[in-house]
Design a protein around this nucleic acid. Structure first.
Lengths: 329, 329
DNA sequence: ATGAAAGCGCTAACAA
DNA sequence: TTGTTAGCGCTTTCAT
C-alpha cells in the first residue's frame, strides 16, 4: 500500500503520480468540486499508493480554519484543572476532534481576569473554545471574534450555547426518592457559591422542601470528598435529627458516608446519603451510592462537535439525568 | 491593550505598525536571530497593542513542525479509550501542550492492525505520538518516520523511550507490607495477559512469594472493579484460607473489597486487600484502600514533554511508587 | 471537467 | 542589523 519515502507524500506527489493537476487532486481528496470518474479514481489510487495524508496545518492555514480546540476551565486558580471531571471532558473532546485532525488544548481561565479569552479569540490557530465551569462574568468576557465557535458546558448566554446535564431534574429525582422513602429532614451539601450551574440543584432542593413543608438545611461545600466529610459532620452537629443527606456531587457524598461511618452512624439505616454524577466508584462503594446520572462524556462530545461543525445549535441543550437507586438511600 | 479589529492581527500588521520588515518582526516575536534593542522594543509594543497572537498553523507549516500530539491507546477495541486512566493521560498531555500551541488528539490503536501508526508517521500535522498500553507488536510497528518524536507510557523499545511507574518497586512495597503485617497466604489479581507492563507486578509477586516460601495464588483479571469482584470470589473459592489479596490496580481492589463485604468477610480483619495506583477514591472508600502511588499525570506530562521538545531522553524513565498505608491492609 | 495562478501567515536563507 | 525573496502544502477563484 505504500512506497517508503524519506519524506511524507504531498498533494503535489499525488497529483503527479495520477497525472493530473494539483487542483484536481485537491478537489478529489477534499471531496469538493467536480472531477471526472476517471480522474477521481486515479487520484484515489495514487493517494492510497503513496499513503498520502493531508497536512491539516496547511489546510487550516489556507482555509483560515484553526487546528486546535481549547478547553478553557474557569476557576480561582489553575488547580481547577486537577479534577477527574475535567479529565473526562478533555478526553471526550479529544476523541471527537481526532477524525477532524484537530487537537485539544487545556487551559485555565482566571475568574477575575478573563482577558485570556481575548487572546483565544485572536489566535487563528484556535478553531473553537469549550468553556467549563462558566460564570456570567466569564460569559460576558467572550469576545465577538469567538462567536459561533464557542460552547459552554454549564450555563450559557445569548451568544454562547449551553450544554449541560439537567441538574434540576436530576436533583429533583433524587430528592423525591428520598422523600418517597420516608426521609423528612433532608440536609444538602452544596457546591461553591460562585458556580451558577450548582444553583440549579439547590433550587430543586428549595422547591422540594418548600412543597413538602420540610426544613431547609444547607451546608456550604465544594466538589471534594474532604469537604463532604466536614459538611456532613457540620450538618449533624447543627441538626442532629437529620435523616438524609443529599450532596451536590458524588465525591462529597462519599466523603459524607465515610464521616458518618466514622461516627458509628449507619447508612442508610440512620441517615440516607445520595449524590449526583454516578462516578464509577459510586457503584462499588460500601454501601453503593444512590445518585443521579451525569453523562459527562456525551455532553463534552456534543459541545465539541457543535464547535467543530460550526453548526447552529439551540441556546440550551439539556441532557437528562436519571435516578440510580443503590444501597445508600 | 488592543484595537478591536474585524480580523486578528498578522505579523504583517505588527511589522507595519512597528515600521520594520516582516522578517525583523518575526525574529523578535519568535525570539530567534538578531534585532536591535530599538527594533525589539517597537515590535513588542506593536504586538502588544494589536493583541497579536502568532498563527501556530502557519508557523508549523513553514517549519514542518506539526500541530498535534496524538495519544494512541493500544487495545483490542476502541473501548480501551473508556478508561479514567486514559482521561488522565490526555488531560495531562493537553496541559503540557497548551503553551506550545499544540493540541492533543486521542486515538485507538488496534493491536492486530497497528498500521494506524504508519498513517500517523505520514501525517505532517502530527508533531508526535505518545503510546499507551503498548505491546511489543505495537512497538515493532512504529515507523522510522516517527523516530525521535514518539514515547511510550509503559514498555519501550530500542527506538521508543519508555516512561512508566516503577511497577516492580510499587508491587514489592505493597507485598512486603502485607508480609510484614503477618499475611502469609496472599492471592494476586492480575491484569490482562497481553499487557507487558502488568507483568512487572506479577514478577514482583512471584519474587516475594518465592523468597518467603509462600504459595502462589494468581487469578486472572483486568483493570475493572467488576473483574475484581469475580476474581476475589474465585480466589476465596479456590483457596479459602487466603488472608490477603493484592490487585494489579485499585479498581479491582475496590471490587474485591465490595465482594468480600457481600460475603460477610471483614477487611482487613479476615482478609487484607491492597491495590495499586492510589486513585482518588482509594482515600475515601470504606475501608480506605492501602495501595501504592502511580503518578499518572507526571508520567504523561514527562512523555508529552519529551515528544514536544524532541529532546534526547534515556531509554527508560521510571517514576517511583511508594506505599500508601490506609485501613484495608 | 481541468489547470494556472494567487495566496493563507509565517520563517529562513541570503543579500545588503 | 535589516530587508528581500522564496517557499511550507494546500484550497480556490478564474479561465479554458
Amino acid at each position: 500500500m505504500s512506497t517508503p519515502t524519506a519524506r511524507p507524500a504531498t498533494l503535489e506527489d499525488v497529483a503527479r503520480l495520477a497525472g493530473v493537476s494539483r487542483s484536481t487532486a485537491s478537489r478529489v481528496i477534499a471531496g469538493t468540486g467536480f472531477a471526472s470518474p476517471a480522474a477521481r479514481h486515479r487520484v484515489t489510487a495514487a493517494a492510497e499508493h503513496l499513503g498520502y495524508v493531508p497536512n491539516a496545518a496547511a489546510r487550516a492555514l489556507v482555509r483560515g480554519a484553526g487546528v486546535r480546540l481549547v478547553i478553557a476551565v474557569a476557576g480561582a486558580d489553575a488547580g481547577v484543572l486537577d479534577d477527574p471531571y475535567v479529565d473526562r471532558v478533555v478526553a471526550a473532546a479529544a476523541r471527537v476532534c481526532a477524525p477532524h485532525a484537530v487537537g485539544v488544548a487545556l487551559e485555565w481561565l482566571s475568574l477575575t481576569e478573563p482577558a485570556g479569552l481575548r487572546r483565544l479569540g485572536e489566535d487563528r490557530s484556535v478553531c473553537g473554545v469549550v468553556l467549563v465551569n462558566t460564570t456570567e462574568t466569564v460569559l460576558d468576557a467572550v469576545p465577538a471574534t469567538l462567536r459561533g465557535r464557542v460552547a459552554s458546558i454549564g450555563i450559557g448566554s445569548a451568544t454562547v450555547p449551553s450544554f449541560d446535564v439537567d441538574n434540576g431534574g436530576g436533583a429533583d429525582a433524587v430528592l423525591r426518592h428520598l422523600y418517597a422513602s420516608g426521609r423528612r429532614r433532608i440536609a444538602m451539601i452544596t457546591g461553591p457559591r460562585w458556580l451558577s450551574c450548582a444553583e440549579r440543584s439547590v433550587a430543586a432542593y428549595r422547591a422540594v422542601t418548600a412543597a413538602a413543608g420540610l426544613p431547609v438545611r444547607l451546608v456550604a461545600g465544594d466538589f471534594t470528598a474532604a469537604h463532604g466529610r466536614r459538611a456532613a459532620l457540620e450538618a449533624l452537629t447543627r441538626w442532629p435529627d437529620t435523616d438524609a443527606i443529599f450532596a451536590i456531587s458524588d465525591a462529597p457524598a462519599l466523603g459524607a458516608i465515610a464521616a458518618l461511618g466514622g461516627r458509628g452512624i449507619r447508612v442508610p439505616h440512620d441517615v440516607a446519603v445520595a449524590g449526583f454524577d454516578d462516578i464509577p466508584y459510586a457503584a462499588i462503594s460500601t454501601p453503593a451510592l444512590t445518585t443521579a446520572t451525569h453523562p459527562v462524556a456525551r455532553i463534552a462530545a456534543a459541545a465539541a462537535s457543535a464547535v467543530l461543525d460550526n453548526q447552529r445549535v439551540p441556546p440550551v441543550t439539556a441532557f437528562p439525568s436519571t435516578l440510580v437507586r443503590r444501597e445508600s438511600a
